[in-house]
Write a protein that binds this DNA or RNA. Structure first.
Lengths: 236, 236
DNA sequence: TCAAACCCAAAAGTACTACTTATTCAAGAA
DNA sequence: TTCTTGAATAAGTAGTACTTTTGGGTTTGA
């Protein structure tokens, strides 16, 4: 997509809104934006259009571009998620996403057990095995890689596009919690065992067991992050 | 937002893509769009920009606007959801959304139990009561209204914006399954009782119980729609 | 003959100007 | 005071001109 003024301006402005630097109710004028970013009217207009479709702003004639209340934002937009994750609200965003994970992934495991292709079932078991190995070897970085691949595959294999779309989010959360150290990460034996359990259950087509095992994983993660957030208020 | 050429063109084009009338890989040219919709360059360009941010298309110089693979779409965009719900893929979309519900709502109930304001707890119990009454009176339409309000309130009270955003989706599913008759809807006594159970548990701050009760509700809904879809393939 | 460099045309991207429409705010009349 | 009217304003729409990228065909050289 090359050197894109559009993307550039969108990133700056979107991030400013996503992180509350431009509070809800704040009013911008498109010509003011042109000047501020040295962009043409075309670019400014299209950026505003995009922000509008993301629910971040509304435009009203004779008034200007108004920053919307967070309640109206499209919180699943990958861009918005990234802005929040890269900004001051990182800790809160991670908690929000982790909570979503805790709801979605057990269901995804269930449907994966019911609908995964034979290849996916095999791959999942293989990844489970890899996780065991790398955990034993205390190789944290490759463990993380396999962990991400595991959850990604599972969400995709669920056959539900709305689950599948969350794979990038889950990857972000998994990577974020280790890199950011928000959650002291040392592959815990029980967690690894549960991953294997999920893989085996999915392979066997045992939906209930897959769901239950996955719930074990995400509940643990959920409780850990809750503890981390409450002890380390606000994060950052 | 008034009479909006933009919105108009976006709706037609977006719906066409969402329902597969324009298959992935199909190439459009922006000047061709201008002509086809009798819109100005400005409008055509901004529509394409929006479709691009929704992940429905990508634009490449010297090639044109390419319809993306569904895997890259932002499936949580309210617009896309509506297009799918209003189009030929309605049955599939309802199933997809119901599955999402089945994952999210139990978690939402849990967090509502932990974080709801006193007012919300009270309101939830009141709605539970109303559900009992209208179910007894076999007043299906007001029952549906209260049902929607119940789930909406619960998702909002969870304090997680990503859960809260799904309230419109849930409303759509609840309304859709009765209106569309995809799921023979007669308020079932167990379901009503479970709603009350959720309300009581949330009120009492009993997260586990709230989650469990809500799981009972959505699992039932999930199984029913699965049965309906498998017996009535494709829906339509 | 084949491949790598090169050039051209096509289509999106960017910029700018002119005009239209809706809406707020205020002045003035009932 | 309240309603009507009108002017000012800012977004919406339209259209033209120019820039940049890039896919594909063509030439050139080994």
């Amino acid at each position: 997509m090359g050197s894109d003024r559009h993307e550039e301006v969108l990133d700056v402005l979107g991030a400013a809104i996503a992180n509350g630097e431009l509070a809800p109710g704040a009013v911008l004028r498109s010509d003011e934006l042109q000047e501020r970013f040295g962009a043409s009217r075309t670019v400014a207009r299209e950026v505003v259009r995009v922000l509008e479709t993301m629910g971040l702003t509304t435009s009203r004639r004779r008034v200007g571009v108004i920053v919307s209340d967070p309640a109206g934002w499209n919180h699943y937009d990958p861009r918005l998620i990234r802005w929040q994750l890269d900004g001051s609200g990182r800790a809160v965003a991670l908690r929000t996403l982790t909570e979503l994970r805790s709801g979605v992934e057990p269901s995804a495991a269930r449907f994966a057990a019911l609908r995964a292709t034979p290849e996916d079932r095999g791959r999942l078991r293989a990844l489970g095995h890899r996780l065991e190995e790398t955990a034993r070897a205390r190789d944290l970085t490759t463990f993380l890689g396999h962990d991400i691949a595991f959850h990604d595959l599972l969400l995709t294999a669920s056959g539900n596009p709305m689950f599948a779309q969350l794979s990038t989010v889950v990857a972000e959360v998994l990577a974020g919690r280790t890199s950011h150290g928000l959650m002291p990460e040392e592959p815990q034996p029980e967690a690894v065992a549960l991953h294997v359990e999920v893989a085996v259950a999915v392979d066997a087509g045992d939906a209930d067991r897959a769901e239950r095992a996955m719930r074990g994983i995400v509940d643990q993660a959920r409780d850990e992050i809750a503890a981390a957030v409450s002890s380390n208020l606000g994060g950052q």
